[in-house]
Design a binder for these strands. Structure first.
Lengths: 330, 330
DNA sequence: ATGAAAGCGCTAACAT
DNA sequence: ATGTTAGCGCTTTCAT
């Protein structure tokens, strides 16, 4: 494969000039630059990335470590990150931590090892990954979940959104509103539960553990949880569900129990999945600004890469309740 | 950041010994190896990836270039690839070509530039990306869509599956079966259309252009296409839809027109999305072995990386028709 | 404006 | 079994 020396030889200049010409430095004679480009073209020259990164001590790459590639929320975040990063010539590599602190840690190791310019991640419970990044001085920003550390963070005010969604269910006349949320210790799951309880408290309702279930953020866990809830002596007549994968499991359980959505059991779920409006009645949701989370995080990361001394910021975005049929009795 | 020389100095050995010890070469005294590991641990040493890749002339990374990260089919493929690659110590970087030949080409350039060990891609129409890879001698395997080139390919017998699905609709008593498929030139789209026509021909039905629409593999395009079909003088009473994103658009159009799924318009869609069973009546689908496509492709790629001379193979996997309510009149 | 040359951190061929 | 050393391909002083 052609190297910079080959190009230099063919163009009759030094490798330094080739490098300068190809990287668009101003200080090179236009005529020479043209000769260099021609030679590079003829040889099909492609710069050797590792060599360049070794020399520059950094790659124009940002790593995005997310907890679930199959979750539309995260793929939307990924798009936001990509769009911003590509604008300024960075590549994005997507890594799937699968909600496992272990995989997350391995990907962080790889990112450090490959000397990526920065990392965007949704931290799992453990803080060790983030500490590694901080120790290495690799720029990073956390999304979706806050960090004990001082660092850039992009969040959604998910507690307020959960409260609003629960208040909506109460206002619609549901009496026994329950909640299916993610595992304890996962901040978004805790926050959504807290918001749910805020609403009950504000409405002077007793919140009871019998109406709450916690499981991993997946359909299977939520399915089981919903079945348990429905089989109780006093089952819930409405449910706040913490993400769209879980909503699939809950809806399945509802079907199996033959209860009618909306009329018998009201439902609001986080995340506006593409199919949410297709079911009958259509699903009320809390829409999170996923794409925007990605763009904001990417801009923050880019800023930190250029200036590591800027003070850490926390950005909190709002979510939007979309009322559809599943949260109405009528 | 600590380098291999720092470790060597602290352990009181040469850099070569450090390298050998840390890479698990047999020819190093266990006692020395222990000393090296201790020193590396104390310094928090992480090998410099670019330096290693430069020297080795290859990175233990495979690139996976897919046409749509937001499509569950592709995320399932990605999981298959990841699982196999990780087993043997390779990292996977996910790239989203967004069905654009241009983006695909840019990602291929990046992959070549970074000297990744291999590339798995779902080729868009243009063959230039693949030619670049072939010219560079970078190992690659194509998934989902065949290639004019001689190369490893993993396919689904999508034509047979489309035929089977269409025959099923005909057998259920639908009279005017239509088809909404992807853009002309996209091989899967062409094949699904061909399979649809095979079935009509076998049933001695005339296939008419009026019942066929082609649009990009997205909900929006399919929505418009379905609306057009339904507004015709003689609208279809059943539809074969070429992927699940499109199914969302088609179902939307059906709802807007107030036609009842199954009873009035039968539907079979490619790809068994998680929500398919939740709508009423549940959606009949052609389930593709997405995860398996990923694992097979990854194994093929790994084999080609180790032996570039092995003859190219074509693997064709079958798809499975899952009959649910949307394709039954009753 | 251009070139010569050093050196990024690592691995592997060669020497011992 | 271990050390010495060359060199992967690039960018960037430094000198001209």
């Amino acid at each position: 494969m052609a190297t910079i020396s080959d190009v230099a030889a063919l163009a009759g200049v030094s490798t330094a000039t080739v490098s300068r010409a190809l990287n668009g430095k101003a200080t090179v004679d236009p005529e020479l630059a043209a000769r260099v480009r021609k030679a590079a073209g003829e040889l099909g020259y492609r710069p050797n990335g590792p060599a360049r990164n070794l020399r520059r001590q950094e790659a124009a790459v940002v790593a995005l470590i997310i907890s679930d590639v199959e979750n539309p929320f995260w793929t939307a975040v990924a798009r936001g990150v990509e769009d911003v990063a590509h604008e300024v010539g960075y590549s994005v590599v997507l890594c799937n931590s699968d909600e496992s602190a272990d995989k997350e840690s391995r990907y962080v190791d790889v990112a450090i090892q490959e000397r990526v310019a920065g990392v965007i991640l949704s931290p799992t419970g453990s803080t060790s990954s983030v500490e590694k990044l901080a120790a290495r001085g690799t720029a990073f920003v956390a999304v979706d979940r806050p960090l004990p550390h001082e660092s850039d963070v992009v969040l959604v005010d998910t507690r307020a959104a959960a409260r609003q969604a629960t208040e909506h269910l109460i206002a619609q006349g549901y009496e026994r509103v329950g909640c299916v949320t993610g595992p304890a210790g996962v901040r978004t799951a805790d926050d959504r539960l807290a918001g749910y309880r805020d609403a009950l408290r504000a409405a002077k309702r007793r919140s009871t553990a019998k109406l709450v279930r916690r499981t991993e953020y997946k359909a299977a866990g939520a399915h089981k949880a919903a079945r348990e809830l429905l089989e109780q002596a006093e089952p819930p007549d409405a449910l706040l569900v913490a993400n769209s994968a879980m909503a699939v499991g809950v809806l399945q359980a509802l079907q199996e129990h033959g209860v009618r959505l909306g009329r018998e059991v009201g439902l609001v779920s986080f995340d506006d999945a593409p199919w949410a409006a297709l079911i009958d009645p259509p699903l009320s949701v809390v829409a999170q600004p996923a794409y925007e989370i990605g763009t904001v995080a990417a801009r923050l990361l880019l800023a930190r890469i250029t200036d590591s001394t800027r003070p850490p910021t926390t950005t909190t975005l709002g979510a939007r309740l979309i009322e559809r049929g599943s949260s109405h009795r009528g």
